[in-house]
């Protein structure tokens, strides 16, 4: 089956905006992604090594703000929804397929290594920046947070500035 075409980006944007609006209206918060990973890390540390979890300032900072089970968290449920929603959309559009997407100029192996490094950097940066593209930049912009705009400009500005050096990966 030939994959269906993607949605018009402006229509997609309006729909994304409505999802974000309902998150704000229902829960008084924006969307997010990296926070769910933080919840997982906090949980894992607490299970694997409870003693180090007690001394870690990172976990202390988290547990001060959140009560209860870290996995019973808004963002964790939301990200589970993202997996389901993405899968449904891919199934409807006929895009379900295991593959490594990369430019013909590089190998799959190189692509995966780059993806891993990118993930590590993004994970680290999202913690320092208190949120990723969705949590800080997109949601922050919708509520006119100064920090949201600053993070957005820093992310896209840096990516633009470095684009030349990584062009072979993509085009």
């Amino acid at each position: 089956m030939k994959p269906k075409k993607y949605l018009n980006p402006y229509l997609g944007g309006v729909l994304l905006g409505l999802v974000l609006l309902s998150a704000n209206f229902i829960s008084g918060r924006g969307l997010g992604a990296s926070g769910a990973i933080k919840s997982c890390i906090v949980t894992a540390t607490t299970i694997i090594s409870p003693s180090s979890a007690q001394t870690s300032g990172f976990i202390k900072e988290y547990t001060e703000k959140h009560t209860g089970n870290p996995m019973k968290n808004w963002l964790v449920f939301e990200m589970l929804g993202v997996l389901v929603g993405g899968f449904l959309s891919g199934a409807i559009a006929g895009r379900l397929k295991f593959k490594v997407e990369h430019s013909p100029k590089i190998t799959s192996r190189k692509r995966l290594i780059m993806a891993l490094i990118g993930g590590v950097l993004f994970g680290w940066g999202s913690q320092l920046g208190r949120g990723c593209t969705s949590g800080s930049a997109l949601s922050g912009m919708a509520v006119l947070s100064l920090g949201g705009f600053i993070t957005m400009m820093a992310i896209f500005g840096t990516a633009f500035a470095l684009a030349y050096f990584f062009r072979k990966n993509w085009i």
Binding site: M114, G118, L121, F122, G125, L128, C132, I155, T158
Partner: peptide, 14 residues
């Protein structure tokens, strides 16, 4: 740092 991760990894967390 996230920007660098974006251009290398091609994704953002979401």
């Amino acid at each position: 740092v996230m920007g660098a991760g974006f251009i290398m990894g091609g994704y953002c967390p979401g």
